[in-house]
Design a protein around this nucleic acid. Structure first.
Lengths: 206, 206
DNA sequence: GGCTAATGCTACACTATGTTGCATTCTAGA
DNA sequence: TCTAGAATGCAACATAGTGTAGCATTAGCC
């Protein structure tokens, strides 16, 4: 990625990683709001002033911590072919659940009561945009204009977050593949119907 | 409940209402986190010390403000018959969308980036529990044990939140009935399938 | 109209934030 | 290996927000 970008000082990498880890651990324990910068630096065994050499404030640290996770999801999503299916024929949802499984501790916190609304909303918007992108590839133009695609996209994005939240709150009793299959198959029927001829747009009703 | 509890002093009612309104307005403008108690009391034109005569802290005020909204939803849901349909044959979702419409300003904030994760999670759990209650009334026992009912419930609860969020973020372009119909009909197909004989539980896959 | 409770006002202790200056330590590169 | 420079540690400071207390004033209730 950033090959010739001379690597930052080893101390810098270490400090930032310590702060990231400390924030994540503390959010799990106390919730984001209750975490003070002092708590983070105490846990990371770093001077508080050092914190401000790397991050503007607590939220900045959170967002940068998110970026690493977010980049991973984007990279995985890039492997999904235009028809919304993976090479093995499974739906794109598998990618999402696998991604969550590998960052379970992070998502368990962020989707919980002690999480951050901005994060949840951001994930929903991202998933919805992915959904819309797939739909534009797959559906005929006439259907796209007739259907409230965005509304359905946000519905499905919220559904995925709901599935993931339940999964995490119950310590992931199913594999990512099982969750993806359950989630996808419950939803796919309704979506197939929505794209069929007899589906009337909401505006058509009184 | 507290029927003969002599009404609180008129000043008390006025003060609390002013503080509630001020909090809601400020959350819209600055987001919950950025609102200080001083901001609330300034906006409400109330002494800061008076705030602490009525509420423990900012979160306490938020939760009490939520209770009024929550009670309204519960009361509406109580009118839904055991089969999940209203007297006019429309699904329970209509109740939810009408409720949201009447508290649009509140939900628009709470479901946004400037909202509160605890609120979003609480709503999802509530909707999921309602969903499970309906399903237990409707489905044969054998199916209930075979299906991961809770998982599906949280999926649908998240879906409803997604639909509502999109609706609010786009200034409610459809009526509550139209949204309920769209939302319900996209989802109902998948749910009907999930309760049919050929639906295999996730645990049955490898 | 008077009693009482609610409110306004001032002050205080406490905690957290973000910044500065300087000493110390460690890394990277010649 | 040695050193210049950067990263860190440390102490101090100004600022802002929180929650509480005491007392004067005002408004509601009977």
């Amino acid at each position: 990625m950033n090959a010739p970008t001379s690597r930052p000082d080893r101390r810098v990498q270490r400090t930032r990683q310590l702060l990231r880890d400390a924030l994540m651990a503390l959010i799990v324990e106390k919730g984001y709001d209750a975490v003070a910068v002092q708590d983070i630096t105490d846990r990371a065994n770093v001077a508080r002033t050092t914190f401000y050499l790397h991050f503007r404030d607590k939220e900045d640290l959170l967002l940068r911590s998110m970026e690493a996770v977010y980049d991973d999801l984007t990279a995985r999503m890039g492997q999904v072919s235009p028809d919304g299916l993976l090479a093995n024929g499974l739906p794109a949802e598998v990618v999402a659940f696998e991604h969550v499984a590998e960052h379970a501790a992070f998502y368990r916190v962020m989707f919980s009561s002690r999480g951050v609304a901005a994060f949840i909303v951001r994930v929903r918007r991202y998933l919805a945009s992915q959904f819309v992108a797939f739909a534009r590839e797959l559906l005929p133009a006439a259907l796209q204009t007739r259907l409230p695609l965005e509304a359905i996209a946000h519905r499905e994005a919220g559904a995925l977050i709901g599935s993931i939240s339940w999964w995490l709150e119950h310590d992931m009793p199913y594999t990512p593949e099982q969750m993806a299959r359950l989630h996808y198959e419950v939803g796919a029927r309704g979506l197939l119907w929505a794209t069929s001829a007899d589906a009337a747009p909401p505006a058509g009703e009184s």
